[in-house]
Structures are given as structure tokens and as C-alpha cells.
């Protein structure tokens, strides 16, 4: 919400490389406009539930699901919703899908639901979803919106996974709950603490900055 996205369309380096516009909608969310690493959107869930890879993945998929569904609905209703009530309508639609996701996850696994806690409900206020609905789905066809949602959703999931994997590996010595290091590995507990979330994300951002800087100089 606080970060309205400027759609860059097909301009720029990547745009000129990909001549088919539809693949671009998909690709941009994965890397170039990655919602977490580049746009720095949807930080709460990114940091809060990325203490293990499995949580991160589940959260990412849940978000991607909500993003996809709300993008479809928003896009298909875009001519029906008057401009003045669009934000309210989007919130309604998003809240609906989040509630549905909440129940579905509970039905799949109570433990997972417990691990993710209230953060599933908080997908409602993830700025990423509302901003995609507002900036993209409300202006584009269903097909494009689906691609956009998939790209962004997978990009988001990917970023969450990057964080979760690092934090679990170091903080717990395992990946997806499977021990990764020898038995007496010393866990870096700080990584699964809140502070570790901040640090890990910051380090990923620094890596992104550094690669960008390198690209700019070469």
C-alpha cells in the first residue's frame, strides 16, 4: 500500500530481450522486480515465518495462492467495480481468499497452521497483494494478471525460501527438518531469532545491491 509500483512495462534491458510480452510479465517478478529483494514489499511475513524452510515455503505458497486468486477475481471484475470503491472491494476479495486459505491449511495440517500462526491472517495486509491488484490486475486482462500473479507469487516464495533456508541451515543445522550437518554441529541460534531475520534479509539485500552495482560498472 505504501509502495505503489511503477510498472515499467517492456522497456529496459530485460524487456528488449524478451520479445514476447507475456513471458516478461512472468519473468520480471522472479528476479528483476522481485517483490522482496527489489521492491522490499510484504516484509512482515517475509521475516516472521522464514525461520525454517518449510514454513517459508508454505507461507510463500499461501501468499502466492491468494495473490493468484485475487488477481483473477479483480481482473475479471475490473469493469464492474467503480473506481471509488475499488480499494474496499479489493480488500474484501483478498480477505475472503485469506480466510479460505486459513481454513484449508488448518485442514491440511494443524501443526503447520500453528507454526505459521496469525501470519496467515495477516496476508490480508500484505502490501504486495494489494499493490498487484491495484497496479496490475485492475488494468489488465485475466491472462496477463495470472502470469503476473504467478511471477510475483513465485518470486515471493523464492525469496522467502532463500531466507528460510539460510536461517534454518545455520540456526537449526537442518533443511526442511532434515539434519544437514554432523551431529554435534553448533547451531547459530541467533538466526532463528527475530534479529536473525533482520540480518539475513539485510545480507540478501546487500548481495542484490552488490550484484547490481557490479552490473552497472561492467
Amino acid at each position: 500500500m505504501s509502495n505503489p509500483i511503477q510498472d515499467k512495462g517492456n522497456t529496459g534491458f530485460w524487456g528488449s530481450l524478451k520479445d514476447s510480452p507475456s513471458t516478461d510479465e512472468f519473468i520480471k517478478g522472479l528476479w528483476r522486480d522481485n517483490p522482496v529483494f527489489v521492491q522490499v514489499l510484504g516484509m512482515c511475513p517475509t521475516l516472521a515465518v522464514s525461520n525454517t524452510a518449510i514454513n517459508a515455503l508454505a507461507m510463500g505458497l499461501a501468499t502466492a495462492f491468494v495473490l493468484l486468486m485475487s488477481n483473477i477475481l479483480v481482473s475479471s471484475l475490473r469493469n464492474f467495480i467503480p473506481k471509488q470503491v475499488r480499494i474496499a472491494s479489493y480488500i474484501l476479495i483478498i480477505a475472503t481468499f485469506v480466510t479460505m486459505t486459513d481454513y484449508i491449511i488448518q485442514a491440511i495440517s494443524i501443526d503447520l497452521h500453528k507454526a505459521l500462526g496469525a501470519f496467515i491472517s495477516l496476508i490480508v495486509v500484505n502490501c504486495l497483494i494489494l499493490s498487484r491488484a491495484e497496479a496490475f490486475a485492475s488494468k489488465n486482462t485475466i491472462g496477463k494478471s495470472v502470469l503476473d500473479a504467478l511471477g510475483m507469487g513465485i518470486g515471493f516464495t523464492f525469496a522467502l525460501f532463500c531466507l528460510g533456508a539460510v536461517r534454518e541451515l545455520l540456526g537449526n543445522g537442518s533443511l526442511f527438518g532434515v539434519p544437514f550437518f554432523p551431529d554435534n554441529f553448533q547451531e547459530w541460534i541467533v538466526m532463528i531469532l527475530p534479529a536473525g531475520g533482520f540480518f539475513t534479509l539485510a545480507i540478501w539485500l546487500i548481495i542484490f545491491n552488490a550484484t547490481k552495482a557490479k552490473k552497472a560498472t561492467t
Binding site: 467503480p82 470503491v85 474484501l92 479460505m100
Partner: peptide
């Protein structure tokens, strides 16, 4: 506006 909101509300409630 009224129609749109209520309509969406009802769809949401159903879902």
C-alpha cells in the same frame, strides 16, 4: 457502487 460492493460482499460471504 452500492451494487458492486454488496455484490462482492455476497460472493465473498458465499466463498
Amino acid at each position: 457502487m452500492l451494487q458492486a460492493m454488496v455484490g462482492i460482499g455476497i460472493i465473498c460471504a458465499l466463498m
